[in-house]
Design a protein around this nucleic acid. Structure first.
Length: 601
RNA sequence: GGGGGCGUAGCUCAGUUGGUUAGAGUGACGGCCUGUCACGCCGUAGGUCGCGGGUUCGAGCCCCGUCGCUCCCGCCA
């Protein structure tokens, strides 16, 4: 018989009754009935109940066992009587009579119980991650993650993609996120950077003539964390294709994402492919964000011109962009509901407020109620109702600002809030869409200059000759430029960002010049890529869905830590391994590094 | 860098208007119990109320500061 096990803890069924078996695992739970002792033994595969009575040889040893001790149990499989079968457990029709029990390892009193599914403090969970990972829910999530990655890999390979690895130690690049730097020992004062994404490498792979590349790629960005953004490192399904249009990329990615979501949806509905495409400008108008949650039925409308009418006397909204956010059925909400939203807008969103009108039925006609209703005569009220699609029983909130972007943003946040508070979000659905036609550039108000809006490597949607001829005087044209740049969004989460790339060195130099990079500077900083583009670069494009976010959605979790095996905390510390940590003077000397601590107050 | 929330037993939490000796559940330990599967019953131990200062006759509670965790804003091509 094997030293540790003949079966796993999730394996034995009625058919095994009569066999003498051996299983090993952790003591999940111990139930001492005095005359009879139960031990539920747990491993990766399941839980098996084991039982021993006081007059049996193994009793004394079994009686010593405590939660999370690791033991090996040997004995015959016996059938349980019908009234003692546990239908909740796949092994619940049998149990093992303990003939021998061997203690492999003991456990101290636990800082965090494995059994049960209560919430525990984040720092305790992270410090004792190995215990946390034994718990059913997160153990399942991590296993799901592995299955999702296998499925993605299989689907990509089936579609003719080839997996390549790219360097982890590379060069720091301007633009984008803050880099993690790695000092060079052999080149004093110089640094490697960890890749924010294999962006340039995958484009070089295309130039090298490999087509349809993919990689489950680690990405490193030294930026602050969010619930849906891991500190430091995360994984992307990075992919790139040659000789493709935007439509070709969509056609390649949709079946993979749709397929993997269907596979693990467990009854939840998944948007059929092709996913709807929403232009960036349309998304900012209708949803107030560039990552709309389409499970939320609320659609924002622009009503600026209604408030501009001469018969509307509400001065606060004159000469402003005004967006209307319908709140279906909100007319029956108490006054506090409206006050709370207004407080939120004034506080958290630092807006002047969130006006509203409640629509009621007045003998077959719509009547407006609420603080600002008296400023709006009937014809204007009808125009509002018509533009926003509200009816009697609904409320209409208003977001107004002299700056269009701010009005849109507040409206977007209000839409999300209203959707949640009114219970309008349809759970159990995965609603995908593409956001397309992102602006190429945006105005940087602080530095009074033009910045790249998203990916500097995107191809502008503009005639090549005209693009090369652009200059400072064409600011409006430049800020109106769209790029072949697209995001995949699911349930309000940005799952991926991609683009048809700019493979033309002249257009690239011009694109960077517009964003304030002198030609020599671009030549130096992107030498590898520019140089490559001068030796025959194929038109190419791709995208990079976030693996962690995909798994988070499929696992139904709200935080990436629930689907990451060994995550860092929000301050980018690994509480289990104690990273980051001090290093020795010797190490620093070898790296030609001297530490200058920040001044303390 | 900024804002919100939280911090009381190993763990999850309660703790009234500032008032005597800070409680419960769970876990640990001991005892009882032959069919449980969140077993049940009895008992014991377990506390720098995050830390420091202040107000007060008196602070877990109020004030100031500080630290930790978390969520959000900034940031994230």
């Amino acid at each position: 018989m094997h030293a540790y096990r003949t079966h796993t803890c999730g394996q034995l069924r009625k058919e095994a009754v009569g066999q003498r078996v051996r299983i090993s695992g952790w003591v999940n739970r111990r139930r001492d009935h005095g005359g009879l002792l139960f031990i539920d033994l747990r491993d990766h595969y399941g839980i098996t109940q084991c039982v021993v009575e006081p007059d049996e040889a193994a009793f004394a040893q079994a009686d010593r066992c405590r939660s999370e001790w690791v033991v090996t149990i040997t004995g015959p499989v016996v059938a349980r009587t019908p009234d003692t079968v546990n239908k909740e457990n796949p092994t619940g029709e049998i149990e093992i009579r303990i003939e021998e029990i061997n203690i492999e390892s003991m456990a101290q009193e636990l800082p965090l119980p494995v059994f049960g599914d209560m919430d525990y403090p984040e720092d305790t969970r992270l410090k004792y991650r190995f215990l946390d990972l034994r718990r059913e829910r997160i153990h399942k999530n991590i296993t799901l993650r592995s299955k999702v990655i296998s499925s993605i890999r299989r689907r990509m390979i089936e579609q003719g993609f080839t997996e390549f690895q790219t360097p982890i130690l590379t060069a720091s690049s301007p633009e984008g996120a803050r880099d993690f730097l790695v000092p060079s020992r052999m080149h004093p004062g110089k640094f490697y950077a960890l890749p924010q994404a294999p962006q340039q490498f995958k484009q070089l792979i295309m130039v090298a003539g490999f087509d349809r590349y993919f990689q489950i790629a680690p990405c490193f960005r030294d930026e602050d964390a969010r619930a849906d953004r891991s500190p430091g490192e995360f994984y992307q399904l990075d992919l790139e294709m040659s000789f493709v249009t935007q439509d070709d990329v969509f056609a390649a990615v949709e079946p993979v994402l749709h397929g993997v979501f269907e596979e693990f949806a467990n009854g939840r509905a998944v948007s059929p492919a092709p996913f709807p495409r929403i232009a960036y400008d349309e998304s900012m108008l209708k949803y107030g964000v560039d990552k709309p949650d389409l499970r939320n039925p609320i659609v924002i409308a622009d009503v600026s011109e209604v408030f501009a009418r001469d018969d509307v006397e509400f001065k606060a909204f004159k000469n402003k962009t005004v967006r209307a956010i319908p709140a279906p059925g909100a007319a029956s909400q108490p006054r506090s509901f409206f006050d709370k939203l207004n407080d939120w807008a004034r506080g958290e969103m630092s807006a002047p407020g969130l006006g509203y009108i409640v629509f009621e039925d007045d003998g077959g006609k719509l009547a407006g109620k609420g603080p600002i209703a008296k400023f709006i005569p009937e014809p204007a009220l009808s125009a509002l109702a018509q533009k926003s699609g509200v009816k009697a029983g609904d409320a209409l909130f208003f977001s107004a600002d002299a700056k269009k972007d701010r009005a849109a943003a507040l409206a977007g946040q209000a839409r999300i809030r209203l959707g949640r508070e009114l219970g309008l979000i349809r759970e159990g659905e995965f609603k995908f869409c593409w956001i397309v036609d992102f602006p190429m550039y945006e105005w940087n108000e602080e530095e009074k200059k033009i910045d790249f809006s998203h990916n500097p490597f995107s191809m502008p949607q503009f005639d090549r000759a005209k693009f090369l001829a652009l200059d400072q005087a064409d600011k409006d044209t430049i800020l109106g430029l769209k790029a072949y740049q697209y995001d995949i969004v699911c349930n309000g989460l940005e799952l991926s960002s991609g683009a048809i790339r700019n493979h033309d060195p002249d257009v690239m130099l011009k694109a960077f010049e517009i964003a304030g990079y002198a030609r020599e500077e671009t030549e130096t900083k992107f030498a590898g890529m520019l140089n490559a583009f001068r030796f025959g670069a194929p038109p190419h494009g791709g995208t990079a869905p976030g693996i962690d976010r995909i798994v988070m959605l499929l696992a139904g979790e709200e935080n990436l830590r629930e689907v990451t095996m060994f995550p860092m905390n929000q301050q980018a510390q690994d509480l289990m391994m104690n990273a980051p940590s001090d290093v020795t003077q010797k190490q620093l000397r070898e790296l030609h590094i001297r530490v200058v601590q920040p001044e303390t107050k």
